[in-house]
Design a protein around this nucleic acid. Structure first.
Lengths: 205, 205
DNA sequence: TTGTTTACTAAACAGTGTTCATTACATTTG
DNA sequence: CAAATGTAATGAACACTGTTTAGTAAACAA
């Protein structure tokens, strides 16, 4: 009796259909401006149908947030295979940057917007995606410590410091808090500031 | 003929009435959950009245964002009169932190939310509040350079680096991206990471 | 051919920001 | 003082939003 399996497959496909339409609309138009009705229109189903596959809008956004993490991890992969741990760290920083600039809406969803965290909170679950991505950073920092690149004792604390710094630029940039610098200079300034940070932690402590 | 002046005064008072009710509601309930109708109810006027004093909701949020900056500048004042420029820098960082934790909604509005920047953008104005607050930081960094505390050449680039770092913690924290650490350890970790950053830039380069 | 499960939807609910014609009153003019 | 003008405030609507529910039609099982 393959019926139940076919149904499951169809259910999965429907989820995917919704998710892909939603993602497309979101990345085109921005998350703030897309409604459940828009998504329903795009896939030619009624709005109520979406609620048969996702508890609410937050849960839908959380699912897309997950896709974002998959994509990010993929793009981090080449960096992770660099031999020198410090090179690896710098490259991870650059790729965090690049991911944010090339996928501003996805990045916003993953690291700034409230919706996905609200979804997690209301079924009090933990942010596994964030945890394991952060784990990659901690591991890299630990490798740097072990290799004697810098002399921090606590890899986790150092990782938070580094993440915060790199996240700071991107968050300020994406939420238009660096628009006071003229557009041409903006990205250049950020690059310089990032390089300065790298040089500083390399020689520091 | 003092009539026109009285009218102006009344207009100003009405603006203030709206602004104060709005601020109270926003800080109590969070910006996402307060509607124009809620504000109108609180001051016992019709919703349409608010639009006689503010172009739209973004403009209202921008006005509150301004109040936030006044408050922040006030709270920065004691730090600015410290003799040693590096002490000044560290104290500014700590106060940025503290302001964010004690006024999470206001901070969010000032440095994370889109609304006030959208208000600025659609009357293509520049973010003066941010500019001048950032100016304070640049000045302090320049003083540090002049005093030989660190050897950066470009105070502005160094200031962006420092701002980004401090902003990074707070933004990640406020938007619940540090909730993967248990609550008791969270703030402690941030303090440690901040101290580590301070030590690093002090000795770096 | 029944009975039951499933997938879907139309319609409604309760809210949102915003606009506009109309009212009610303060001010100025004849 | 009465009539004309200006203006502050609003009721009601518009076009949305996320979400729920009762009901339908098709697919499946007996």
């Amino acid at each position: 009796m393959g019926i139940v399996e076919r149904k499951e497959r169809e259910k999965e496909e429907m989820r995917k259909l919704i998710l892909e339409a939603a993602q497309k609309l979101f990345l085109e138009t921005g998350f703030e401006k897309v409604s459940i009705r828009n998504i329903a229109d795009a896939i030619e189903y009624s709005p109520a149908t979406i609620y048969l596959y996702f508890k609410d809008k937050n849960e839908l956004l959380y699912a897309i947030h997950n896709i974002g993490f998959q994509k990010m991890i993929e793009e981090f992969h080449p960096a992770l295979s660099l031999a020198d741990p410090f090179d690896r760290l710098v490259e991870m920083g650059r790729r965090y940057f690049r991911f944010a600039f090339e996928n501003p809406e996805l990045f916003d969803l993953m690291f700034i917007m409230n919706a996905p965290m609200d979804a997690l909170a209301c079924r009090d679950d933990i942010w596994d995606e964030g945890r394991s991505a952060f784990g990659l950073l901690v591991k890299c920092v630990q490798d740097c410590i072990d290799a004697g690149v810098f002399k921090y004792q606590d890899a986790e604390v150092a990782a938070i410091m580094i993440w915060s710094s790199v996240h700071g630029y991107t968050a300020l940039f994406l939420r238009k808090r660096l628009d006071m610098f003229e557009e041409s200079r903006r990205k250049e300034l950020m690059e310089e500031a990032f390089d300065l940070f790298i040089k500083t932690i390399q020689k520091g402590l």
